[in-house]
Design a protein around this nucleic acid. Structure first.
Lengths: 157, 157
DNA sequence: GTGGCAGTACTCGGATAACCTTTGTCCGAGTCTAAACGG
DNA sequence: CCGTTTAGACTCGGACAAAGGTTATCCGAGTACTGCCAC
């Protein structure tokens, strides 16, 4: 899994901490975590396409959360950054080789291996969908949001 | 996730179907699914290193299951092929940027994001560990094992 | 005829290239600010 | 002094290279079979 997921989640968390007063630019977000600014922007654009963030162009522009944190699940962010297709991809090799002699009806039911892998991946998705940004905010250390705000305001000077 | 997982699982299933009469060579396994033989061998070697398969060199050599199918979980195969490290890797970016001003004790507890991601991944692993090769055998179509054996024997001619 | 032996063919194992996804970077389109100018 | 205009600078957005990982391949070490030879 790419590092963009970690970046996206932390950025969303910071955006929630900053209380949506004004859009936060890529440079400011990158400075908050010492990340490469331009590449971070590329990843945030994926979140914009998924409808998790909204972007406002122009000077004083930037990103902000499109929904309240309670309405954004970790699954949303992961799917936006990493893609919506499943990790395990069944290529139906059971039909090749020895499978070409099988009656066609045998492939009506999905491959058992694909089913098992999909079941596991579904458990993963379910767990991710059960956690929202609001839950992360609740579990975060108490001082972190305040420190982020102070750091952000000092950044403007 | 690489395609080697699908290949490895199907090969393990075939090895179980063939009843462990004799080692099955890479070429035979590749023919059973029309896969590139040499690259398939590379992936099976990973299963050997993990102790899931045993390999016997020499003519008439090949691979066989190291344990009965009830003792081989999908998690074992996936971990052997794909690696044992977690998909989400926390790089502790919370300590960078605004985090450098935080008191050291704040980082005693693990990052909430990493915890949430780990929880989801644990659910995935738990689901994979709950399914064994024997379960896949039970759910497979009845005719498939017999057809695999016939195809395999005709391959020797 | 039978036991031993050497040759041979076939197998796994690890080291070696090609392709592709991911990572990282750049420049153009659009927008708000702010200063300058005229009334 | 105030409204308008115009230049500027900063932002996002998508198109463009470089790197690491995965995919695919080749050659070397080892083993069992097979045919041959000696006894």
């Amino acid at each position: 899994m790419g590092e963009g997921v970690e970046w996206g989640l932390h950025c969303c968390l910071v955006l929630a901490w900053l209380d949506d007063e004004a859009p936060v630019s890529t440079g400011r977000l990158a400075a908050l975590f010492e990340l490469p600014p331009v590449y971070l922007k590329k990843r945030l654009q994926a979140l914009v396409r998924a409808g998790i963030l909204t972007s406002t162009p122009g000077v004083q522009g930037g990103f902000r959360l499109a929904r309240p944190p309670e309405k954004i699940t970790l699954m949303d962010v992961v799917a936006a950054v990493e893609g919506r297709d499943e990790a395990f991809r069944c290529t139906e090799i059971r039909r090749q080789g020895a499978g070409v002699e099988a009656p066609a009806g045998e492939f009506a039911r999905p491959c058992g291996i694909a089913t098992a892998m999909r079941r596991a991946e579904l458990a993963w998705r379910r767990e991710l969908a059960a956690q929202t940004l609001a839950d992360l905010i609740a579990d975060a250390p108490a001082g972190a949001p305040r420190r982020a705000r102070r750091f952000y305001e000092r950044l403007g000077s």
